[in-house]
Simulated scan of single mutants.
Amino acid sequence: MYSTLLLLHSLGRWAVLLSLLLGLVRAYRGWLGRHSFTGSDNAVRHWTATIAHGQLMLGYALYFSSPLVRAFRLRDAEHDPGALFFGLQHVLAMTLAIVVLTIGSALAKRRETDEAKFRTMALWFTAALLLIFLAIPWPFSPLASRPYFRF
């Protein structure tokens, strides 16, 4: 089960990033180009948040079944940067990123004007993307290096 969760979570990372980048492109294009907020824009806003929530749930399932996180809870993590990263930093930063994304999605849905919808979506989604970029265990990360795809 752990390896299946790990694979799904690894692949889900790309779904979140792609949907978030699509949402950002549409948001900035609409905001700066003064376009109308269409049903497609709303669908991208909605599905970006939905995909991110699914990834967060996969992440929580992985968190509670991970031997690395179990090791973090059972010993002093100061001496194991990988355990500290996954046991604390990754889960907190990603949870915060999804909260930011969710707030931005909800606020954008409720704005009155098209410009305000796009602006809200652009700013909150950008903040979420920055948090996500900081918390992903990239192959070049000094905190916890992981490959782009886990098989």
Results as ranks from 00 to 15, higher is better:
L17K: 06
V100D: 02
F149L: 14
R110D: 14
A127L: 12
R110I: 07
R34S: 12
T48P: 00
H46I: 11
W47G: 01
A122Q: 04
K109S: 09
L18T: 05
F64G: 05
F72N: 01
G54R: 00
V99S: 00
D114N: 03
Y148L: 15
G30N: 00
T50C: 08
F133Y: 11
L101E: 10
A97V: 02
L96H: 06
M1H: 13
L21P: 00
R70I: 11
G33D: 01
V69L: 05
F151R: 00
I51R: 06
A43G: 02
L88A: 15
S65E: 14
M57D: 10
S65T: 15
A128M: 05
H53W: 12
P67S: 09
F133R: 11
A93S: 11
W47M: 08
L143P: 04
L130Q: 02
A116Y: 03
L96S: 11
D114C: 06
P67I: 09
T113G: 04
P142L: 09
I51N: 00
M94A: 06
A61E: 01
R111M: 03
A43T: 11
K109Y: 07
M94L: 12
L84P: 08
R34E: 13
W124H: 09
V44P: 07
L88Y: 14
R110H: 15
P81V: 09
S3R: 12
L84E: 15
G33C: 01
L22K: 05
V69K: 01
A122M: 00
G39W: 03
R75M: 12
A71C: 09
P147F: 04
L107V: 09
G82Q: 14
G82C: 08
A127S: 09
A71H: 12
L5H: 05
G12R: 06
L56C: 08
V44K: 05
S10R: 04
R13W: 00
H79F: 13
I103C: 01
W138Q: 07
L58V: 00
N42C: 12
P147K: 05
Y60H: 10
S36K: 04
M121K: 09
S105V: 10
L74K: 12
A122C: 01
M1I: 13
V99M: 10
S65R: 14
S105M: 10
T50I: 12
S66W: 03
S141Q: 08
K117L: 02
K109G: 11
A135G: 11
H79L: 13
L18M: 08
L24P: 00
I136F: 09
A83N: 07
L22C: 07
I51P: 00
R111A: 05
Q89Y: 13
V16W: 02
G87H: 02
S10Q: 03
T48W: 04
L101I: 03
